[in-house]
């Protein structure tokens, strides 16, 4: 098994910034770091486990019905995660609302299953799924870091920007309310893509 499986999903074939998969769920959960972290972990677990299971089943599934089989396996893991979160982290589960359910249609999972798991042995498929999930999580956390820091002045809910800086306490600082709004996630992500492509010039589009 070569090293590419571990490193590529983070930069050269990052699911979000290069392959453009799984954008849907990635943006709405980035208002706070906590939500982004939970989402990143959930997606990593679902991608890794469903890649593993489908790789084990790859020689027994008839080609014509494979999409349904994939959806059922993925949906099963998502239900497990959803029930787990509702039981142990109810607030987070409420905050993420429908986006946990939407992991089912997250294109990263289907993409990795179709492109990798159905043609490879179980263990490499598991690693590939996990690394892609983490590569996705990395971008999520970068975006969430800036949105939470600039939008609410907190990180993981802890106040980072000193309270005495704020206008209402006689300082000069004010939170940027725009950061909390949905469109800023897209603009920040655009900037992340821009920075990455300026460094890795081979990714630039003509």
């Amino acid at each position: 098994m070569n090293k590419d499986i571990y490193t590529k999903p983070f930069f050269l074939t990052n699911p979000i910034t290069v392959l453009v998969l799984g954008i849907c769920s990635s943006l709405a959960v980035t208002v706070q770091l906590k939500g982004a972290l939970v989402m990143a972990l959930s997606v990593t677990i679902v991608t890794a486990c469903s890649s593993l299971i489908l790789s084990l089943l790859r020689n027994t599934i008839p080609n014509r019905v494979r999409i349904i089989v994939q959806l059922v396996v993925v949906a099963m893991f998502v239900i497990l995660i959803d029930q787990f979160l509702q039981a142990f982290a109810y607030d987070t589960s409420k905050m993420l609302s429908v986006y946990i359910g939407l992991i089912i249609t997250n294109c990263i999972i289907m993409g990795r299953i179709e492109a990798f798991a159905l043609g490879n042995k179980p263990w490499p498929s598991f690693v590939d799924g996990a690394c892609n999930g983490l590569g996705y999580g990395m971008i999520l956390i970068i975006v969430a870091f800036f949105r939470e820091l600039l939008g609410s002045g907190t990180l993981f809910g802890f106040q980072v920007i000193p309270a005495s800086w704020y206008m209402e306490n006689g300082g000069w600082y004010m939170n940027n309310g725009l950061m909390i709004l949905p469109p800023m996630a897209l603009i920040l992500l655009g900037c992340v893509v821009w920075i990455q492509r300026s460094i890795q010039k081979e990714l630039q589009e003509k």
Partner: peptide, 11 residues
């Protein structure tokens, strides 16, 4: 160059 395609679409 770095914004072409995906980047500018996001923005």
């Amino acid at each position: 160059a770095g914004l072409k395609g995906l980047g500018i679409s996001f923005i």
